[in-house]
C-alpha cells in the first residue's frame, strides 16, 4: 500500500519558541524601509501590506510603532472620488481587495471617518451581480474572495443591509462542492483559502446552518500532514498561511481541536527566521509580512497567551470586533 505524502521535514535546529520581539522589529522596519527592492515591487498591493503589518503589530501590542497619521492620510488619498472604491496605492485603480484592507485598517484605528463611507458602500453595492456574486472591480472577475470582501467591508461599516445578503449567500452556497468544501466559482475545486472566504461570508451573514459541517471539518482536518503543517488542497505541500485559512475555518465551525494543535504549533514556530525576524511559508524560506501575520494569528487561535486574541472571521484583534459590537456567527458544537 502506498502512503506517499508530499511534506517537509522539520530540522533539529529549527526555532521552537516564539521570537516575538524579532517579528515586531522586522515589521517596524519593513514598513519604513523604502530602499527595499520588495517595497518598490509591492506597490500594487501596498494597502494589503499595511493591513498585514498593522494587524500583526496590533496582535503583538506594538502598533504604536506604526506611523498612524501617515497611514490614515495615505488611505484617504487612495479613495477614488468617482467610484468610491479604494486602491492599493495612490493613482491605482480601486479594487474590492484593497477597499477591504483599508476599511480593516481604519476599523483598528477607529478612524472610519477618514474616508467617505457612503462612497465605499456605493462601490461595493455596484459590484454585486444578479446571481448574488461580486466582481472584484469593474472588469468583472467573479470570485468567492470578493463575496467575502464585500460582506466584511460592509459589516465593518455597519452597512450590510445595503446589498442583497440572501443572494450573496446563495451564490456562495452554489460554490459548495461534493466534498463539502468550496472553490472560487461554481464547480471550481475545493481550496482551503476559498473555504475560509466562504465560511467567513456565512459567519458574517449568520447562515452557518447551510454548511455540511462535519464533512467540511473533516476535509479541513485532512489538510494536516505528518510535519504538523497544513496544506490547502490534497497532495500539496504545507504552507504557513494555510494554518490560518484552515484553523480560522475550523474555529468558526467550532472544531479547532480536531487537528493536532501541538504539532501545528511546532510547524508554525519552525517557519520563523531567527535572524531576520518574520515568518515564511515553509521552514527556511524568505519571510514576508503576509506570512508573519498568518503565523501570529494562527498561534493566537492555538491559544498562545503572549499574542492578543484574534477574531477567526475578520482576522483582526477580537477587541476591535468587540468595540464595533460585531458578532460573527460561530457554530455551537
Amino acid at each position: 500500500m502506498s502512503f506517499k505524502t508530499k511534506d517537509v521535514v522539520l530540522s533539529q535546529t529549527r526555532p521552537t519558541t516564539l521570537l516575538l520581539q524579532k517579528h515586531a522589529d522586522y515589521l517596524a522596519s519593513y514598513g519604513l524601509n523604502k530602499d527595499d527592492f520588495e517595497y518598490c515591487m509591492t506597490e500594487y498591493l501596498r494597502m494589503s501590506g499595511i493591513y498585514w503589518s498593522l494587524t500583526a503589530m496590533e496582535l503583538m501590542d506594538q502598533s504604536s510603532r506604526m506611523p498612524k497619521d501617515d497611514i490614515i492620510e495615505f488611505i484617504s488619498l487612495c479613495q477614488d472620488s468617482e467610484s468610491g472604491g479604494i486602491s492599493a496605492s495612490n493613482g491605482h485603480d480601486p479594487h474590492m481587495l484593497y477597499t477591504l484592507s483599508a476599511v480593516q485598517v481604519l476599523a483598528m484605528y477607529d478612524r472610519s471617518d477618514a474616508i467617505n463611507i457612503d462612497g465605499v458602500v456605493k462601490f461595493v453595492v455596484s459590484l454585486q451581480q444578479d446571481d448574488g456574486s461580486f466582481f472584484g472591480d469593474k472588469w468583472g472577475e467573479v470570485d468567492t474572495r470578493f463575496s467575502f470582501c464585500a460582506v466584511m467591508t460592509l459589516s465593518l461599516l455597519h452597512r450590510l443591509d445595503a446589498i442583497n445578503v440572501n443572494r450573496a449567500v446563495d451564490f456562495v452556497l452554489s460554490c459548495m462542492n461534493f466534498d463539502g468544501g468550496f472553490g472560487s466559482k461554481p464547480g471550481s475545486e475545493s481550496h482551503a483559502g476559498l473555504i475560509y472566504c466562504c465560511v467567513g461570508t456565512l459567519s458574517i451573514c449568520k447562515r452557518m446552518d447551510a454548511l455540511k459541517v462535519d464533512e467540511l471539518a473533516w476535509w479541513l482536518c485532512e489538510r494536516q500532514l505528518p510535519s504538523g503543517g497544513l496544506n490547502g488542497r490534497p497532495e500539496k505541500l504545507p504552507d504557513l498561511c494555510y494554518s490560518w485559512w484552515v484553523m480560522a475555518s475550523l474555529s468558526m465551525l467550532n472544531r479547532i481541536h480536531w487537528v493536532d494543535q501541538e504539532k501545528l504549533e511546532q510547524y508554525i514556530l519552525a517557519c520563523q527566521d531567527s535572524e531576520t525576524g518574520g515568518f515564511s511559508d515553509r521552514p527556511g524560506d524568505i519571510t514576508d509580512p503576509f506570512h508573519t501575520l498568518f503565523g501570529l494569528a494562527g498561534l493566537s487561535l492555538l491559544g498562545n497567551s503572549s499574542i492578543k486574541q484574534v477574531n477567526p472571521t475578520y482576522c483582526m484583534p477580537q477587541e476591535t470586533i468587540d468595540r464595533l459590537r460585531l458578532e460573527p456567527q460561530i457554530l455551537l458544537i
Binding site: 523604502k34 530602499d35 527592492f37 518598490c40 515591487m41 495615505f74 488619498l77 496605492s89 495612490n90 493613482g91
Partner: peptide, 24 residues
Amino acid sequence: PVPEDDGITPVVVIAHSEKFEDVY
C-alpha cells in the same frame, strides 16, 4: 516622470531597482 507618492516618507531609489523605478 511621477515617482510613487504614498505620502509617508520620501522614496529612496537604489541601484538594483533603477529600471523598475524608471518604467513605473
